[in-house]
């Protein structure tokens, strides 16, 4: 049996997660999510895990990184819980607590993006793909023919 590992109080936290207590577990969020089928748990289940004390399990899940920020869940939630924003909160909490599994790829893309914004104020898709590709060549090498087509159409900026 897994021990309960909540390290925050859901009542007084910086992340707005207390809204999770309002969830009625209807599953509208998971049903609306375009990538729910790729997730370890849908958003409904993540909320349930957190409420039941399994925060760490929620934070290490791939769920919070598969969220594509389409806000379909937030738009449709009958309790008007800002589901997407809470997923963002969970991401930051996971990063802060060092609970991001190395297998999860999105944080690597986000970091490549973030680094560029901080260093030069603007980003280029090509540079992000390059730096992400150093870590995940298998994702980027197959995109080389596409990149050449884009280059030919002057759709690449370095």
């Amino acid at each position: 049996m897994e021990s309960k590992q909540n390290t925050i109080s859901l009542i007084e936290d910086d992340y707005g997660l207390s809204r999770i207590n309002e969830c009625i577990q209807c599953g509208t969020c998971s049903g609306s999510c375009p990538l729910a089928h790729e997730m370890d748990h849908g958003p409904r289940e993540v909320f349930s895990l957190i409420r039941d004390g399994f925060l760490e399990k929620a934070l290490i899940s791939n769920t919070i990184w598969f969220c594509v920020s389409c806000y379909a869940c937030s738009s449709r939630c009958p309790r008007e819980i800002p589901v997407t924003d809470l997923i963002y909160s969970l991401r930051q909490m996971a990063v802060k607590q060092g609970l991001v599994s190395k297998k999860i790829k999105m944080p690597h893309l986000f970091k490549a993006f973030d680094r560029q914004v901080r260093s030069g104020k603007r980003i280029s898709e090509a540079r992000i793909a390059f730096f992400y590709g150093l870590r995940h060549p298998g994702d980027v090498i197959p995109a080389i023919p596409l990149s050449l087509k884009l280059l030919k159409r002057k759709r690449v900026e370095l």
Binding site: S69, R91, F113, D114, Q116, V117, K121
Partner: peptide
């Protein structure tokens, strides 16, 4: 002198930085 909006990437990693942008 505009800067990048940060998109979902910056807001995912650091809310304060996203707000700053």
């Amino acid at each position: 002198e505009w800067n990048c909006c940060g998109a979902s990437a910056v807001f995912s990693l650091d809310r304060a930085e996203g707000v700053w942008l």
